[in-house]
């Protein structure tokens, strides 16, 4: 920039520059009022330094005085400045670590305390609403018998099979729908319709077709998640900016290379988001599937405990279901954050 020296800024010694707040503010208002004459490059250049404008603050202030009165409105009413709020209540503002930890702890402890309170105050009978301690004991019991491990493994295996199959089908299909207009036109109407059929409504049908063993449960999980995951994947893929695709072609990429090296890497974080949401759904469906005709699994354990009126066991299983769901979610979120480090 050293090339431009003539008429360059020499604001350091300009009179009335920094320190005099009044003219500065007035000059600011005036510069909004009247931009410097276009076409006169030296004037335009001078304006780049704020201090020069302040130098003739007095002249400018007069200018602003006449200019501001032009509109025939009464002065705009001003509102009281807002009350200062603690940072915890400020929108999208990072909060101190202790506050965050405290809030997180509370979000677990308060429901737990309520549970304890309800179980003692409202009822008291151990077989109606067991306390957390009773549920914990029942859980330990189940674990000691080896039932808990067996049930958990059975449920997880079904999720891996059913949801894994759904992912294997829905991700390629979703990419095809997101990347090609033809794919969208061909599949979106029918999938958009199918996803509104509640998967649980298929249970009787699946039992008739596939029997009451593993097949029908895996199929239910598949049906319950495949349509949503397809549509959400397609949405994630469609979010790619057109310029990114166009520029890839001008760099010599072919269609397949654009898909492989541009479209898929760009949509991967979005695809993982979809998988994370639908993994939660899959985990719900497996319990539903096991409520009917199963020999093991966490859902089966709930039904069986109900039959023997072991309500504390039901609670123990519910807690285990929640904890495993949370673990799956956290694992997928970590994976997503790793893959999508370039976002945000």
């Amino acid at each position: 920039m050293s090339v431009l020296t003539e008429g360059g800024p020499e604001p350091a010694g300009s009179p009335g520059g920094p320190g005099t707040a009044g003219p500065l503010a007035a000059a600011d208002a005036a510069s909004r009022e009247s931009p410097p004459a276009a076409g006169d490059p030296s004037a335009a250049h001078l304006d780049l330094t704020g201090d020069t404008a302040a130098a003739d603050g007095a002249a400018v202030a007069v200018h602003a005085g006449t200019g501001a009165g032009a509109a025939a409105f009464a002065p705009l009413p001003r509102r009281q400045p807002p009350r200062r709020v603690p940072r915890v209540f400020a929108i999208r503002t990072p909060i101190p670590r202790p506050s965050r930890l405290a809030l997180t702890a509370l979000s677990v402890l308060v429901p737990l305390a309520l549970w304890q309170l309800l179980s003692t105050v409202i009822d008291g009978r151990p077989d109606y609403l067991p306390s957390p301690a009773q549920a914990w004991a029942a859980g330990l019991d189940l674990a000691r018998d080896g039932l808990l491990l067996g049930d958990t493994v059975a449920s997880i295996r079904r999720v891996l099979l059913g949801f894994g199959l759904a992912v294997a089908v829905s991700v390629p299909l979703g990419i095809a729908m997101g990347a090609f207009q033809a794919g969208r036109a061909a599949f979106e109407p029918v999938i958009g319709l199918l996803r509104y059929l509640p998967a649980s409504a298929f249970i009787p049908l699946l039992a008739l077709w596939l029997g009451i063993d593993e097949m029908s449960k895996v199929a239910l999980l598949f049906l319950g998640t495949v349509f949503f995951n397809t549509l959400m994947t397609a949405d994630a893929v469609r979010r790619i900016p057109g310029a990114l695709v166009d520029v890839s072609y001008t760099l010599g990429a072919r269609r397949g290379e654009v898909l492989r090296k541009v479209v898929i890497p760009h949509s991967l974080p979005g695809i993982l988001d979809a998988i994370r949401v639908n993994a939660a759904a899959a985990w719900n469906f497996v319990v539903v599937a096991e409520l009917f005709a199963a020999e093991e699994g966490l859902g089966y354990r709930i039904v069986r405990s109900q039959r023997f009126n072991q309500i504390d066991r039901i609670f123990a299983v519910l807690v285990v279901i929640a904890l495993i769901g949370l673990t799956i979610d956290i694992a997928l979120r970590l994976l997503r954050d790793r893959v999508g480090r370039w976002t945000s």
């Binding site: 900016p241 310029a243 166009d246 520029v247 001008t250 890497p265 760009h266 370039w342 976002t343």
Partner: peptide, 14 residues
Amino acid sequence: RGMVFQTGAVYPWR
């Protein structure tokens, strides 16, 4: 024929 768009269109993950 190389092209540079107004927005740059660089690959954000690379």
